[in-house]
Design a protein around this nucleic acid. Sequence first.
DNA 1: GACACTTTATGACGCAGCGTCATATTATGA
DNA 2: TCATAATATGACGCTGCGTCATAAAGTGTC
Lengths: 258, 258
Amino acid sequence: MKISPAKTNPSAAPVSRKQRELAQRETLILDAAQNILHQHGYATLTMERVAEAVEYSKGTIYNHFSSKEDLICSLCCRSINNLIEIFTRAVRYEGSSRERFSAIGIGYSLHHQINPMAAQIVQIIKINSVREKISPEKLGEMESLEQRITSIAMSVVQDAIGCGDLPLETRAITDSIVFGCWSMHYGALLLEQSDIPLKSLGFSPAVELLWLNTQKFLDGYNWLPLSSASGHETMFRKLSADLYEDEINTLNNKNKKS
Amino acid sequence: MKISPAKTNPSAAPVSRKQRELAQRETLILDAAQNILHQHGYATLTMERVAEAVEYSKGTIYNHFSSKEDLICSLCCRSINNLIEIFTRAVRYEGSSRERFSAIGIGYSLHHQINPMAAQIVQIIKINSVREKISPEKLGEMESLEQRITSIAMSVVQDAIGCGDLPLETRAITDSIVFGCWSMHYGALLLEQSDIPLKSLGFSPAVELLWLNTQKFLDGYNWLPLSSASGHETMFRKLSADLYEDEINTLNNKNKKS
DNA sequence: GACACTTTATGACGCAGCGTCATATTATGA
DNA sequence: TCATAATATGACGCTGCGTCATAAAGTGTC
């Protein structure tokens, strides 16, 4: 049983009604899966349940996704696409290179606070034995998205080097700065998501620490303008207000409800 | 079916022959599980297979571990215990506070390079739906180990503040430094372990980046003595040679084989 | 060593969830 | 209207977890 190409990124290719219907249903399925994930957790995400939610049979779901892992990978791609939009917004911000880079971090953090399951999914997708079950095409798609999002982050670092905000050392540092921030954010959000009792281990809220640490990290690289303790808060609030009004509202509503 | 307390940490309590035999078998089971994990990956780790490997029946395995997740959690505890030994070694090192703290990072990194599966296990254990299946006692045990290892790292930061190597700011920073390093290391090693093609995304080897970034991070906090590009390498080699000879040999042998 | 009784080991069984495939249903087009 | 192709369905096979009635081994007493 084969089915249309079903591109996540609808290229400019002409699409027939069939293809549109198919793409639509694919979205429907993904929405349903996301819902189940958010409302009842990963353990209850079964293909049967997804099928039931969209009122199609299991077989039909399998026409769209070659395995459960494949479906999850698609959710992951969605998430990265979402992040790409956020990153792009941050990069276009009118501010110093450091502000723009920091804004990326805030966006990343907000995205994961709004979609707590995203972190779990990303985490699950990274487990090798899970990866093995994903179709090569979908893995390729995810990889190319990762490529795109990485290059967005790297471009800001390049800008900073270009305009002298970052002292140019002999060694290439673009990758190390991006990797440092990525790993720090990734690690911090995973640690927060998992129900490790950080608080009882003596830690302040992860999101706060993450912001502070990112600034210290950039200070370590002498990324101008250097931060000051008082400047931190101001900058954080400014960037949040200027770039992420919607996200912050969403987050507040979410917290209110629970 | 109940069975003896089976403490992982053999407290000074008098142990009967029975209890000793039981503890021994528990070790046997854990060894077998670890083996399967290392040789054939997570996907093939089934309770049946473990039972077969130790030549006991499945039921007997379940006398020791209430679920598969419980068993994995025990492996995780082992891993943390291993890390505690490494951290302790680092803390006792005769050197500056910064060297000792950095040494912790190196040890953490080495441990995960030697036991690639450790990262995967830790990752798996952090997924909520997995956690739910672990007995509260074992989770408590793990938590207390996490408590211990955290406090070891924190103690070095405290020392540094005490002796003036770290400028004392108004805000408590002990937790933020430890959390920053933890998240950076955790994130970096997870990213490396997962088969994300970091190289093709334009990144240098994760372990190198991790070391550089850790130093930049500590520089950002003004942890004396500040690092210099040339000093990095020297310090790294010195610490590795002085503290982790065994680990490095193990690692080299491992790489030679493959 | 025989017996009663307790403790421990066993693997067949029930169950859940993934993925398949023969069959049923619907769409297309001549 | 009918033939043929495309798609949907859900019963089925399979794997792996965890249970529990039963078997086996151990322990203590005479």
